[in-house]
Design a protein around this nucleic acid. Sequence first.
DNA 1: CGACCGATCGTCT
DNA 2: GACGATCGGTCGA
Length: 202
Amino acid sequence: MEQLPASFFNRSQVDVIAAELLGKQLVTCLNGVITAGIIVETEAYYGAIDKASHAYGGRRTKRTETLYAAGGTAYVYLCYGIHHLFNIVTNQANIPHAVLIRAVEPTQGIEEICRRMNRPKPDYRMTSGPGNSCKALGINRKHNGIDLLTSPEIQICEGLTIDPEGIGTSPRIGVDYAGEDALLPYRFYIKGNRYVSGKVRN
DNA sequence: CGACCGATCGTCT
DNA sequence: GACGATCGGTCGA
């Protein structure tokens, strides 16, 4: 499987990257077990100028430091004390853009994914939502800061080509605190895909 | 269905 | 000491 090059992640428009990540494959290899899925839902976070971003206003803390790494770095953090959320840092170093992976459609290692999610058989809810996607693919805070271009554990690879008309957009989910920035159309998803989270799927 | 609520903890104030 | 870029269960209609 062919990995995406650094030039894909180093670009300056994170919303364009978020849309183009739809259809790509997110692959993990943990203890020799491969699990993978097609990315079907993403959100773009525009860094310093985006009130919904952890790096709004150039905010730099121990946690957000990862966002300032070069494009292609993994940013993983714990949300609500329970869920891990996986992001891909984009743009050049010191520009804290990131794409949140909100849902994937499983393609490899489905039995292992069922085991991790404690389900007897495959179910479209298994990998719907950012917390579930992380758990299903075995991603956790240990992966924060790793370079996706060279890591043996997590890779982003070529996948399906998605027709622009098959892509839906909407405001981002769960960012009401961001004022007017909560309205920006920075959520992207594959229209009609079963694994897309939330109500808006078409 | 939709609305509500509890779980649970790292991070920042 | 407060608060989430969430999830799954429960309750009522």
